[in-house]
Amino acid sequence: MNKTQKIARFNLIVILIALTLSAIAVSAFYFIVDLPIRRALGGLGFLGIAGLMGLSPVLFGKRRGQISFDERDQLIHIRATIVAYSVFWLVFAAACMIPWWILETGAKIPVVVLPAMLAGGFIIVQLVQSVATLVQYGLAGKGEKS
């Protein structure tokens, strides 16, 4: 397993942990503690765990005397990024059009929706990019080493 695969796997695990803990926290606050939904959504604070993805270049940094990123890795990275942003484009279009369709023309929405969309978009891009990277290398690992 090479450096790119390790980073993708690390990011995927971190995102899945963040999403799972957030879902559990929101469900627990809403159904068990009986908090109103606005306060129960505070459980989304667990998404902050996704910030650990920033550590991946440090954890899987370049080692001396080894080529860790060749032309093939570059092509895989470009493809994975393009797939991730294509999915992001679909989600972005849906996120912008659904409120416009559901609410009346000129209705107001809280501005906090925008940063929430931003955070959601970031998580989607990272999640899809990690999955696309791992799928392209093959889940089994065909001998790539870092």
């Binding site: 059009m97 023309t105 000129g106 107001k108 929405i109 809280p110 501005v111």
Partner: peptide
């Protein structure tokens, strides 16, 4: 948008499309 209307403000839904 956040800077213009402030953290507790709201924006028109027409801004989205």
């Amino acid at each position: 948008a956040w800077c213009i209307v402030g953290p507790h403000g709201s924006i028109s839904v027409n801004v989205m499309p």
